[in-house]
């Protein structure tokens, strides 16, 4: 008997009696979702900037990352071209990656980043600094609404703040293996 057959037959024999799968209710949406989202991002160590359009990002980049040499992006002008086939050596040199986030979650500051928006799966993690652009109308209250809106795709990640660790004496350190900073660029509604 294969391991699979052994396991499945043992489970059949031993499993407890049938229990129902609950329906997950829609939990009430809270008010002022955008403010809550901004607060959540700050709490988890991220920064929020609000821009009227993506064109304004250059000024901001100049101010914040003036020394950055390699800025990689699929949505604003890029100094390096990165694709799924880019070498690790090239990826490693990324100073700032600017990528489009799909959904922001108010209750925890997480942003859904599907593979299609990453240029390369390793980019959001190997870059020294990460900027996620988010349309303000794509902020939802909680994880239930977020999961209603997304599908698994091939690969996708909720990113909540910069990479962090507290493994040494529970002291919080920002910048473990992934991005040392996370900036959320909120794009206001076009009027």
């Amino acid at each position: 008997m294969s391991a699979k057959e052994k396991i499945i037959s043992a489970i059949k024999q031993n499993k407890p009696g049938a229990k129902e799968l609950p329906v997950i209710p829609v939990f009430n949406a809270e008010e002022n979702t955008i403010e809550t989202f901004k607060q959540s991002v700050k709490t988890i160590g991220g920064e929020v900037i609000e821009l009227a359009s993506l064109a304004e990002i250059d000024v901001w980049l100049e101010k914040k990352f003036s020394t950055a040499e390699n800025i990689v992006s699929a949505i604003v002008s890029s100094s390096v071209t990165i694709s799924e086939s880019s070498s690790t050596e090239l990826l490693e040199k990324t100073d700032v990656a600017i990528l489009q986030g799909e959904w922001g979650v108010a209750e925890n500051g997480a942003i859904w980043l599907p593979e299609q928006n990453m240029l390369n799966r390793a980019l959001p993690f190997i870059t020294q600094h990460l900027m996620l652009v988010l349309n303000i109308e794509n902020i939802v209250t909680n994880m239930h609404v977020a999961y209603e809106n997304i599908s698994s795709g091939a690969y996708g990640v909720f990113i909540a703040g910069p990479s962090k660790t507290a493994d040494i004496e529970q002291s919080l350190v920002i910048g473990a293996h992934g991005a040392r900073s996370l900036t959320v660029v909120l794009l206001k509604r076009a009027c």
Binding site: I24, E107, M143, Y147, Y155, F158, I159, A160, G178
Partner: peptide
């Protein structure tokens, strides 16, 4: 897939008192 919405709200809050882990990777 939607069951994740329940577990991602519980896991990090229970574990370390964070609202969610930094990376929830699918």
């Amino acid at each position: 897939f939607n069951d994740l919405s329940v577990f991602t709200r519980l896991l990090a809050r229970s574990a370390t008192g964070q609202p969610i882990t930094t990376y929830t990777s699918h």
